[in-house]
């Protein structure tokens, strides 16, 4: 038996928003530690890795590991039936082929139950080594969102350069070129507004803005975002989900031909 209850449907709605543009179907892997999901987009350029530890739930029970194969669009439709303040419970039998969503209104006067069929999903799990990166940039999530959106109006590719001066985002296209520079401002009082750059050596990498714009759909989940970069390796974009998990995106770089 798997059963997990979260106090606010809003959180699960935000998680789905952050996944649904990249992934059509995914296995939600449930263990006694919590729920995780790893899936690549269909072109194998990017990957999303979600972790929601059990301590983030009001109630959590998972008698044995279970993978819930879920069509993300179907789950999104069901979650739209919940109010943001509703409590949500997910329930699945060990050998069952459905997952049940129960929504309870804050005043407990309304209870809705939706049953969704599970799918058999043949997913390729990738082994992703935890590693130290050459440069990291922590910035307000809304700032990163704005930069990706603004530079998309200029070109398809962004060059991210980290130097002692700061971090520079550059896009160029037929109509011209745009450059946005952020400087370290770790002295700003409010932590969520800080730009904190760590760097072992200068580097410059290029990425497809199309995918970065998908990643910024997670902006509602966290105040800040951290970009981790190493030359010629995939970029890691991480949004922390309070203190109980994260959503991480990996994006393969564009490499000079």
């Amino acid at each position: 038996m798997f059963e997990a209850r979260m106090a606010q449907a809003a959180l699960l709605k935000k998680v789905l928003e952050a996944v649904k543009d990249l992934v059509t179907d995914a296995n939600w892997d449930c263990t006694s530690a919590g729920i995780s999901l790893q899936a690549m987009d269909s072109s194998h350029v990017s990957l999303v890795s979600l972790l929601m530890r059990k301590d983030g739930f009001d109630m959590y029970r998972c008698d044995r590991p279970i993978s819930l194969g879920i069509n993300i669009a179907s789950m999104t439709k069901i979650m739209k039936c919940a109010n943001n303040n509703d409590a949500v419970t997910l329930r699945a039998e060990d050998e069952g082929d459905t997952v049940v969503f129960t929504f309870e209104s804050a005043d407990q006067e309304k209870v809705s139950e939706f049953e969704m069929k599970l799918m058999d999903i043949d997913s390729e799990h990738l082994g992703i080594p935890e590693r130290e990166h050459t440069a990291t940039v922590k910035m307000p999530a809304s700032e990163f969102h704005g930069i990706c959106r603004d530079l998309s109006t200029i070109g398809e590719t962004v060059q991210v350069s980290v130097t002692k001066e700061g971090v520079q985002f550059t896009a160029s296209g037929d109509t011209g070129k745009g450059t946005i520079t952020l400087r370290n401002n770790s002295s700003v009082d409010e932590e969520s507004q800080q730009v904190v750059i760590t760097m072992q050596e200068e580097l410059s990498l290029s990425f497809a803005l199309r995918y970065l714009n998908f990643f910024t759909k997670a902006t509602a989940l966290a105040d800040s975002v951290t970009l981790s970069m190493t030359a010629d390796l995939p970029l890691v974009v991480e949004y922390r989900i309070e203190d109980t998990g994260y959503i991480r995106y990996f994006l393969a770089p564009k490499i000079d031909d």
Binding site: H125, L126, G127, P234, K254, I255, D256, D257
Partner: peptide, 14 residues
């Protein structure tokens, strides 16, 4: 011109 790399060339299948 820069070419889009695949994630599969960086991470191995489990």
């Amino acid at each position: 011109k820069a070419k889009q790399a695949s994630l599969m060339s960086f991470f191995s299948k489990k």
